[in-house]
Write a protein that binds this DNA or RNA. Structure first.
Lengths: 141, 141
DNA sequence: AGTAGGAATTAGAATAATTCCAAATCACCC
DNA sequence: GGGTGATTTGGAATTATTCTAATTCCTACT
């Protein structure tokens, strides 16, 4: 089995595990998000996907992204007014938005951090998701 | 001195303290944000402002908001893909986004909370702002 | 294998939030 | 009170995203 088809199989499994049809479009969108973890926007994903699938439409990219987000294979990150970005890191983590370069970095968190954050909520508030974003300058390296 | 002009004077002072010209438009935009602390969008602010200043334009509302945000009198809150909301609470606080009602609630935080959050950043990351957003269901009351 | 039926994809139009632009007006300083 | 740079204005433009309707593709069933 080639590395190619191996990858295909892995992606396919991921999709099937979420009970969604493993279409070629979904596969390639997911592949693109996984292989360069730089929090691309829908437009950037569209451009990268077109390299291997020139006939795909932007609407399909949006459809696939929505599906992947809904089934939890990908997270969306919204920072300020900028276009939504997509992140394949499923661990709990925060985001650091570099205001010089515009890049977004993942920030790993101590184990139960997000759960501890949840405890500051007053009674009656039940949070399904917690989002922690930093913004500032990162050392150039 | 009437309560009206008193209010006017207070707003005016706030603007001047930030080294920006206290124009009537900026004053009324700020007034609207301060008097109903429900995190309105630019459009909602526009509608409310028009009640007392029917000739104001949406572009001006955006201009004023940008000025007020830049000088720190108002904060902007961005949640998901929804329009930007504006918040007059200058204390450090988090936001809770009620996914049923769509409302945004302020969540007060223990004193040095945001600073403690900052300490989880790896060396080389210097955050100027920290944003903590929850999303979920709030008890109806 | 053939086909019905639902799901997914497509291209392009539509929408919605925000920004841009150029002209008119305003506010502050002398 | 006049000059000057800041501000406001309305409308056009931009940008991200969603909608729509038609087409194509799978999948299951016979």
């Amino acid at each position: 089995m080639s590395a190619q088809s191996d990858k295909h199989a892995v992606l396919c499994e991921k999709l099937k595990a979420c009970d969604i049809r493993p279409t070629p479009q979904r596969e390639v969108v997911l592949k693109v998000i996984l292989e360069k973890r730089d929090h691309p926007t829908a437009d950037e994903i569209f451009a990268r996907v077109k390299a291997s699938m020139p006939t795909i439409s932007l609407a399909t990219v949006y459809n696939c992204l929505e599906t992947l987000v809904t089934c939890g294979l990908v997270r969306q990150v919204n920072l300020e007014r900028a276009p939504t970005r997509y992140c394949p890191n499923l661990q709990e983590h925060a985001h650091f938005h570099d205001e010089v370069t515009g890049k977004v970095h993942d920030v790993e968190l101590p184990g139960d951090f997000m759960d501890r954050l949840r405890t500051i909520l007053p009674a009656g508030f039940d949070a399904s998701t917690v989002e922690l974003n930093f913004r500032g300058k990162a050392a150039t390296n």
